[in-house]
Amino acid sequence: MAEPSPERPGLPKKVSLAERAVSPEKQEFLRKLRERAQGIADALFAAHGPTAPKQIGEMQGRVLEDLIALAKDARGWQCSTVALMSGR
């Protein structure tokens, strides 16, 4: 079974999305991204029920466009541990 990669000594700690939301603005942005992700999941359920199509191309509507837009906007969650420690 594939398991999550363990934390490796000497490498920086992985930082969760919630830990990266260091300001009210970032927390609000994270909340909106989560809402969009849930909206896509709900739309997929409405369109396909519980059965996943074999490929993204078989999905209904704007799903791929919405997934790409979400990934593009999620890029803002790159951060540095230096920034986290300083609260920036």
Binding site: L44, L70, A71, C79, S80
Partner: peptide
């Protein structure tokens, strides 16, 4: 609950 899940994330790099 929907069985569908959409997760997002981003890269991190301290320095």
């Amino acid at each position: 609950d929907t069985p569908w899940a959409v997760l997002f994330d981003a890269n991190t790099k301290p320095t």
